[in-house]
Design a protein around this nucleic acid. Structure first.
Lengths: 349, 349
DNA sequence: CGCTATCATGACAGCGCTACCATTCTGGAC
DNA sequence: GTCCAGAATGGTAGCGCTGTCATGATAGCG
């Protein structure tokens, strides 16, 4: 602005690629009266330069309105402060809460989130992973331990932290989650202890939401041990209040003797509970209802929903903390973290 | 792999920076028997190279397991296929639904989302914008039309599309949203028409959630026109079922003659409705309740919640489509899109 | 006072890719 | 056969930044 023309004194270069009014670090350095590399250090490693240098650089940054080009920085350093987060769904608030936990912890440390959504499709996951590796992300967070082989190979050869969340198990690298089979067992035991003997498990798209199917496995194990049948009703719409209402109707039609329904999640359970109310059914007198997740909704309906509380935001925060610890070079970490769960007994069972 | 050592024939370079086992485009080109630039074109502009060249490049990519370095590509082309999305909150499902709409449309076009959360803090927003501009994002989506001056200046000088969503108005560039004042008016009119005269508006943190306060403005206007008082109760916890229950209690205590409560959103309204049920209050007989958003929850409680349906995913999809259109160079677009809203009358009023 | 350890700074090269221009090669019009 | 349009390909030179090493300045030691 003040100078006549900034490229008048660069006679050698025959052509400019892009005039690109963007302020560069070199310009900042020039204004500050230091070399570009010192300007770089002043911004990235402030403790490595003298006070005076740092001050003049910061002042130049301010006056020029310099915005660092992170793309160039990442290319040069092959570090990006970008964390890839891949989830199967954004409709399901559970994943959003995990993202929230990740987000607040990672942003505080100056990391940004690159968000990907697989829609429960492992091939899509592979594509996303490829793209994200191309961004030389510092780490990758993915929901679940199951991946297709291409994805597995790609990640196995990747030399950055990988964090698999939601479920507990032998992962590729780091893992923060809970034991879904145990959660399923826990609820089944509760229902049995309450005296229910005709119990139906209702889930939605279990092939995709395989964690729900792991809970069913636990549920089935327990009932089998007790010598009881464990019928399963699978809905083919994704979990929602509406689907829960339909689930209730189908159970009543197909299994009229049912005393209790163990829903794969709280959305379904709450939907069924509200539908039961609309139909004048007594919960738990006519039918008991249990869910999974501990969504706020379940705590506000009457009767309060019996559910299993999973610490979702906490899972995100813990995962983020472990990643940060790992990324700061500390090797002291546990590969696996069990965040546990809590049976929350309401009036619905 | 097949060759002895790829860097044996680069004798001039004294030192290697990082050995970086990463496969580069040059290696792909070498294997494919073409120049690097042709390999680049084969991947980015397939129609610009011959069939044979394209085939051999793709085959080389496959066999080497090449993953393009998007950071380098972005630096060279100053395009990134990254879209910054900045929202004030992830707890509020409304923003998540907009993100979902954006996400599914943008991912289909090969764009990735860089997600930022301001926690309703405009200074934080500015920081995020700075960071995201540093990634040379192709475009930026932000919730709302209000920004601090630094942010405004920064964005005004930025030469990429900016999309402001959620509320309708004179934005910086593109805008997709709805008229919140009109929505507030709409609901107030409905309540008046239903015969209610003692109506309290209940919101949470209106200074932050200023869109809720715009709805209150509309609400107030209408009641003023009718010559009625428009008391406001502001909660200082964020919108949630719990807060709604508290809001109900406070209204009953402070304004015992209240006939109807106009809540700033469905979370609050549903929380109040469920709380009313727990307390044996008749809705709408003892107290009428209305919300805003049209969350599924409101449609499943009994009585069904009267609310205003806002097309949130649709807003995200439309915003994404407009951005894509703009990014593909088409200049034919409307700067402003009103997605409208629908009054949904349930049994709660 | 000379020697080495430490700090602050700078020169250089290069991260992996693509924009730009130049070149070659084809095929058709005349 | 000449000329030119157009397609396919390649060479060169960066994009803006930071890792690596080298240098100069300062301090610490016997």
């Amino acid at each position: 602005m003040s100078k006549d023309s900034p490229n008048a004194d660069s006679p050698t270069t025959a052509r400019q690629r892009r005039s690109s009014d963007q302020v560069t670090l070199s310009q900042v350095a020039q204004v500050a009266g230091v070399s570009p590399i010192t300007a770089s250090r002043a911004l990235n490693y402030p403790e490595k330069v003298s006070d005076s240098a740092r001050r003049s650089v910061l002042q130049a940054v301010e006056s020029l309105g310099y915005v660092p080009n992170l793309v160039a920085g990442s290319l040069a350093s092959s570090r990006s402060r970008l964390i890839a987060v891949i989830v199967p769904s954004l409709i399901n608030s559970v994943f959003v809460e995990v993202i929230k936990g990740l987000q607040e912890t990672l942003e505080a440390e100056g990391y940004q989130i690159l968000l990907g959504n697989t829609d429960y499709d492992l091939d899509r996951e592979y594509q996303l992973v490829r793209t994200f590796l191309g961004w030389s992300c510092s780490a990758l967070v993915t929901a679940g331990l199951r991946h297709n082989t291409a994805c597995h190979t790609l990640l196995a050869n990747w030399d950055h932290p990988i964090m698999e969340v939601m479920e507990l198990g032998q992962g590729m690298d780091l893992n923060v989650g809970l034991d879904h089979v145990a959660a399923g067992r826990c609820m089944a035991n509760h229902l049995f202890d309450k005296g229910y003997r005709h119990i139906v498990y209702v889930g939605a798209r279990l092939a995709q939401d395989y964690r729900a199917s792991m809970r069913f496995d636990g549920h089935k194990e327990v009932l089998k041990e007790k010598g009881i049948d464990a019928p399963l009703l699978e809905l083919d719409t994704l979990g929602s209040l509406q689907a829960g209402a339909e689930g209730l109707a189908q159970v009543l039609a197909q299994y009229p003797h049912t005393q209790a329904i163990h829903f794969a999640n709280d959305d379904l359970a709450a939907g069924a509970l509200l539908a039961a109310q609309r139909q004048g059914l007594n919960v738990p007198g006519d039918i008991a209802i249990a869910g999974f997740n501990g969504l706020p909704l379940g705590q506000h309906v009457t009767p309060q929903l019996t559910t299993i509380l999973s610490p979702r935001e906490e899972m995100g925060r813990l995962a983020a903390k472990e990643l940060i610890r790992r990324l700061s070079g500390k090797n002291v970490y546990r590969r696996q973290h069990d965040v546990g769960f809590t049976l929350q007994i309401g009036g619905s069972t």
